[in-house]
Design a binder for these strands. Structure first.
Lengths: 344, 344
DNA sequence: CTGTTAGCGCGTTCAT
DNA sequence: ATGAACGCGCTAACAG
């Protein structure tokens, strides 16, 4: 009769399995990992024993060994509640899980200090790689991680001050196209609502907006620009300000969905028929009872692409080819955008 | 002149620091951890050396030691793209991060096999605890993890077949209240749209719906029940079916936001003035141009509560009090709901 | 106050 | 084909 093992005990170790079957720990290890050079009979015996004990190799101990990574990658985002980031995370995870990696998600809440600490902690935890959406232009902590030999891939923002793979959205082109469409429809006074100037995507989209104006010979007017809104409530207030100008804009372009939603509420409340366009598609955009032009793109794909880039690097990291310059050329992928019209 | 250390080398170890300062590894360890019984002067020297080398303790090696956990907890959800889960994740992370834990998020996509594997992997990675939203009633893998000594907290579903802390939403009460309100407004033929019967929250909400009918002497009619819709598209089709019945319902109650949105589209397309109520609040619900009664609750708080429960258990796990029964009584927290009226 | 020994669980290296 | 020793980085436990 087999001993009634207490399951609450510490989990069974490799030696427990080996001892039970009557072989050495090494043989057990090899057997379980399908190492050649193990008698088929022995292998079966070991496996049986492992199953009976409910043995699972300890990934922590395994990861401690030099050469073999931890199988963990870090994902650093600013706000998981934003659909863009949760989609991104899903895309990353779907690719990495397929390659046998688990994803540790860290949320920074836009705080640079949190981000620094988080990245340092991920490195201390020996993640095999990092995918990050940096909150600001100061990316020295990421540069340091990369210099420490941890592959870094940036999503939605380009690297600043160091070299790294990245996956971007065509912020400039999308914003320009949406603005151009407003102009084509006859609008000349077009307001702009966007995130704080420090955010890369925000300034890039502002550039696209400005380029469209310039291409049509429309002067850029500071008084119609409102940057810094992060939540719909703030955006609504900013939009209301623009609509209350002596010469109010006849159309608004918003650099992200938070601002678009705020602007929608302001327009609805004002009773005007101000035209609205914005970056980021979102659910129910078609049911708001207002014409709406949106810049759409595939946020899952941004995550998947970042995951593929990282997975690619992780494969080539094994040998002693540690020199960063030798790791193959840096990749920069730009995801395309498209215009969608709603609620005509 | 100090040796020009190659940063791409393997990261500095504790011994490197010790050797550089001229002490033993043990002393360095103690100094960096503010252990009492270290000469203040020595401590300073060690710290200086650590800073110069950019030393960071290896969390993996540290986690290998018995007694000291890994500082990682696992979060198992079915679909991170659903705002409910991303909010939940945020809530969990905010609490756990405050207690020094990192959260590993695993997405199962409603697949039970994925969930099993994920949980096993988390245990193999020696997470200190697990918070899970199980996809189905079969929770043996979670029971096994709990039996292995890993504290488990369930969110949004109760444990089945074992004991564990959990944080629930008042599914029954919320659904009953919303349905009752429809009845109060004069509706007698009320349709029901919900998730697959296997999902706990779905059946619980169906029970609440049925209870409201019963309380008002309205017979429960199978032909007005549609379960199994997971996406708005399916929900829309199901709702359209109900609206096409010989005696169509004058109101619909939906057990989650996916179904509510689908039903909204069906009603809008039908041109009828069918009343609509549903579980889960969602953004823009107020701007759909239709009266809408929603059951709202705080999904961040569900996550935070789960995090607090787990953090609480993690504190009491240290001593040899391994017996589950001795760990203090099982907690079950129920988050309240409230009714919200939109778009009158 | 500081150093030495030992071991967490695994896998690589070298023997047998 | 199998086993014994060694070490990954860190820290309790016991010297000194």
């Amino acid at each position: 009769m087999p001993e009634p093992r207490l399951p609450a005990d510490s989990p069974p170790t490799l030696r427990d399995v080996a001892q039970r079957v009557g072989v050495s720990a090494m043989t057990a290890s090899r057997a379980l990992r399908d190492d050649p050079g193990v008698l088929a009979a022995t292998r079966e015996r070991v496996r049986a024993g492992a199953d009976e004990l409910g043995y699972r190799p300890d990934e922590v101990a395994r990861g401690l060994r030099p050469g073999s990574g931890t199988g963990l990658i870090g994902l650093v985002v600013t706000n998981l509640a934003n659909p863009f980031y949760s989609r991104l995370a899903l895309g990353v995870d779907s690719v990495m899980a397929g390659d046998g990696f688990k994803t540790v998600i860290g949320n920074t809440g836009q705080d640079l200090d949190s981000e620094r600490e988080l990245v340092a902690d991920l490195v201390a935890r020996r993640v095999d790689g990092i995918i990050a959406v940096p909150a600001a232009a100061d990316q020295r902590h990421l540069a340091a991680a990369a210099a420490d030999g941890v592959p870094v891939v940036l999503a939605s923002r380009p690297p600043e001050g160091f070299e790294a793979d990245c996956v971007l959205v065509d912020d400039f082109g999308g914003a320009r196209a949406a603005t151009a469409r407003l102009i084509t429809r006859g609008h000349r006074r077009i307001g702009f609502l966007g995130s704080p100037p420090a955010v890369y995507t925000g300034t890039e989209r502002l550039r696209g907006y400005a380029a469209a104006l310039a291409a049509h010979g429309i002067p850029f007017d500071d008084s119609r620009i409102r940057q810094g809104q992060t939540e719909p409530r703030e955006a609504r207030r900013a939009a209301a300000e623009l609509l209350a100008l002596p010469e109010p804009p006849t159309a608004l372009f918003c650099s992200n969905n938070r601002n678009t939603i705020g602007a929608f509420r302001a327009i609805r409340a004002s009773g005007t028929d101000t035209a609205l366009a914005g970056f980021d598609d979102f659910e129910l955009a078609d049911s708001l009872g207002l014409p709406l032009t949106l810049v759409a793109y595939d946020s899952d794909e941004v995550g998947r692409a970042a995951g593929r880039l990282l997975a690619h690097r992780l494969r080539r990291t094994d040998p002693g080819t540690e020199k960063k310059s030798a790791l193959g050329s840096i990749q920069r992928i730009v995801t395309p955008t498209s215009l969608v019209e709603y609620g005509s």
